[in-house]
Design a binder for these strands. Structure first.
Lengths: 179, 179
DNA sequence: GTCTATACGTGGATAGAC
DNA sequence: GTCTATCCACGTATAGAC
């Protein structure tokens, strides 16, 4: 009982550091984000970051973990995925995606995530080429996300979300859709 | 005359450094590649790298420049693009793509490149939604390239290049194609 | 117990020795 | 023309302040 407020304070500090880490990793990627900058944003000394989270790599693993992969991915419908990827991305997802090409850890997490997506989607499609079409859809959404949220291609400024979603659905989900 | 061999030797050294830089940038990205490792691979002292190419950023700009963007992109046909992205990537392209999410320099180069691609492609398509379809095609190829050559999704091991190219063409190039 | 100061090794970058 | 000496910022482990 007497230790509650002490532990709570420590937990709050750890959470502040985690939030700061998510923003920095999302903005600069794994290598680009510095422990010192994360500490400053959280208002603590750099050493405290290590004290709480062990190492920069473990901090990244905690900060960039995709939310509830197993249950969620299995239940998702294709239209949900298409819609979600056109909205703004949560910091966790941004952090993971921004580092997927430069951090082996992030690369593996992203590959596992997308492998599962392809399997789930191909199971909900029909025809001999179900897996090929599922792979194309997943890759298409990946490319759209990168181009829109990270590269910020100028064409996105001239095309409405509705037009884009409609065209993407028509192309990626021929015949049978997920909803 | 007397200075020719001296200059030639210096130029060869610069080229060796550039080749080593391309490999390192392609393998580890901008931040992950170190000047010291590039120097070692080229067989020279780290300071020589800076002497020749000024700064790590300028070295990256030289190493990751996409080949002959203006003339080539304008002349390319869609089928060429689709095919090329399914083959192995040259070190320059790999270096640029691997860093596009973590290096502002690479991000801008990639955005410019893809913006031009969208413009060129939409000009060769017909219909009101030409630009939307062009954007989808470019993003789809981008996603395929990332998923195949960097994330290495397992589905690619089970699907032949021909099947993939056929399905991609059918989906991305409806109606009128570029060739 | 919670946080801070300090020190070590490795990056990129510059100036100057050979 | 090539390499050494040096500087500052980074990640990280340690010891010490409150």
């Amino acid at each position: 009982m007497a230790g509650t407020s002490r532990d709570a304070a420590r937990a709050r500090t750890a959470q502040r550091i985690l939030d700061a880490a998510r923003e920095e990793f999302a903005a600069h990627g794994y290598k680009g984000a510095t422990v010192r900058a994360i500490a400053e944003k959280a208002g603590v000394h750099p050493s405290l970051v290590m004290q709480h989270h062990g190492t920069k790599e473990r901090l990244f693993a905690s900060a960039a973990r995709l939310p509830a992969d197993d249950e969620q991915a299995a239940a998702e419908h294709v239209s949900d995925v298409l819609g979600a990827r056109l909205d703004d991305l949560p910091p966790q997802t941004r952090a993971l995606m921004r580092s997927m090409l430069t951090s082996p850890e992030a690369e593996r997490a992203m590959r596992d995530h997308l492998d599962r997506r392809v399997l789930n989607l191909s199971a909900s499609l029909e025809g001999d080429d179900a897996e090929t079409r599922a792979l194309l859809a997943v890759c298409g959404i990946l490319g759209l996300t990168v181009a829109r949220h990270f590269l910020k291609l100028e064409a996105f400024e001239r095309i409405s979300d509705d037009d884009l979603a409609a065209a993407a659905s028509a192309r990626f989900l021929t015949g049978k859709a997920g909803d």
